[in-house]
Amino acid sequence: MNWRRAAVPFERERSERYLPLVVGLMVFLAALALAVAFALDGAMERWRADLKDTVTVQIPTGGPATASAATGQRVEAALALLRATPGIERATPLPVSEVERLLEPWLGRAQLGLPLPTVIDVVRVAGAPFDRADLAQRLQAAAPGAIVEDHGEWLTRLVKLAAAVQAIAMAVVVLVGAAAAIIVVFATRAGLAVHRNTIEVLHLIGARDDYIAKEFQTHALWLGVRGALYGLGLAALALALLGSGLADLELLPWLTFAPDLRALLALALLPVATALIAMATARVTVVRALRRMP
């Protein structure tokens, strides 16, 4: 006597084969979207921490012949003004080698002969008032040609863009979940049609709707778990490749796909959520169909 065998013979169904694959693809896409959302979240945190209270001042080279001497004077004047300005904690010129290192990924080693501007890294006192226009005006007077770059403005725009991309990524996760639910609805309806005779027998010999629904929801749960694990495995592989590719390129040092604890938890919950969506969807579909029986 086999008490474990399901009364509905699901093993004879096509959904047994294709549903985990489709669910797997859905979970793969959702996992990628989640990873992008979390990567951007981490990047935004880092941008905020690194750039919130910093300003960059650029002193372009003055001209080919006297460039070096003139630029040196303007840099000294700018440094003196910056250090004397209230609300500025520190002003440090970046060594040429550091500027070259920053430009190397974009221009390659060939940039080494180019006239590079002197870059002064300015750190503001946290929370102190800052008037960019006033500083720019005074710097123009002390060191003609000086350019003030306030990272706050740039950061605000970048964070807005990142937040929008993040929202789209989360919307993708939700849409993928909805698409998975719709697929489960159709698969369950197909299952109800295929097993109509068995369901009718169970119903007529006294099975409650809950008993029949449990057969379908348990089946959907395991198909969902199987599919979700396929998808998550594939996503882990893709993210590992992407992460290692980005690290090799060193193009986007602020974007990393090394998941933190929150991201790992979210990714681990993905199969659970998928399985629960599949189970709940199958149950609702079956109960609705059974209610049409006398």
Binding site: M1, N2, W3, R5, A7, P9, E11, R12, N197, T198, E200, V201, L202, L204, I205, G206, A207, R208, Y211
Partner: peptide, 28 residues
């Protein structure tokens, strides 16, 4: 559950053994 039915074409579950088919009303 108080009515026993012998259907015209038996309507047994083919993937269940004889004993599992007989036990089905009790199992449900």
């Amino acid at each position: 559950r108080r009515i026993g039915i012998v259907f015209q074409n038996f309507r047994l579950l083919d993937h269940f053994t004889a004993i599992d088919n007989v036990a089905l009303p009790l199992r449900i």
